[in-house]
Design a protein around this nucleic acid. Sequence first.
DNA 1: GACCATATATCGGGAGCCGATATATGGGCT
DNA 2: AGCCCATATATCGGCTCCCGATATATGGTC
Lengths: 106, 106
Amino acid sequence: MTKMTEATYFILAALLEAPLHGYGIIKRAGEQSAGRVKLAVGTLYGALDRLAEAGLVVVDREEVVDGRPRRYYRITDDGVTAVREEAVRLQQAARVVTGQIAVMGA
Amino acid sequence: MTKMTEATYFILAALLEAPLHGYGIIKRAGEQSAGRVKLAVGTLYGALDRLAEAGLVVVDREEVVDGRPRRYYRITDDGVTAVREEAVRLQQAARVVTGQIAVMGA
DNA sequence: GACCATATATCGGGAGCCGATATATGGGCT
DNA sequence: AGCCCATATATCGGCTCCCGATATATGGTC
């Protein structure tokens, strides 16, 4: 089953376009879901640690902006594969109830 | 957000067609997901208690077959609404990654 | 000065999944 | 006869993980 939690899924999804730092991930996840997903900070950092340990994300670079540190995370190839597989699982799960066939491209 | 767990979702989905007893729900969920979802018994009964308390399912009837008790659960109108809303959420979540638009009927 | 957005980090509580265990019956295999 | 398996319900403890609260720090707005 290789289950993935919802928070983990949206974190990976947020990193698909470009590397982001923690706070940026929270904002991006909110944007992508039209405000429905609000990642709590306590959720984020724990999840990022787990993702890094699993090799699905890596620290891209660290910066200091206005005295505040910023740690950018980048999704790995394994991370991309994992989040795409999870997207397929979500769609299949939805189909069980909707009974509708989704049009899927690449 | 009104989050619903994966186990809860598949339990409600399994009950959409007809009332089922606990063990039947486990088998039905496996069928509907092509064997991907395997509900653990410890998960099932706890989840059913929570669903009953929330009014999303009710006990339909109790039977005794071959000396073994069977308790049938039935999904309520609120349960149907909840599982449909969750299906939409899952589809929207999947779309964040796939970027594809799904064809939806009713 | 107070508050808010930005930014990272930790801790504790609570929810919930899951394997193990217990109990019970009937069928199939050896 | 003995054993395992499928069926069927129920409970318990461990573990994962989400999340709010808290702490710390800076710069802009009011």
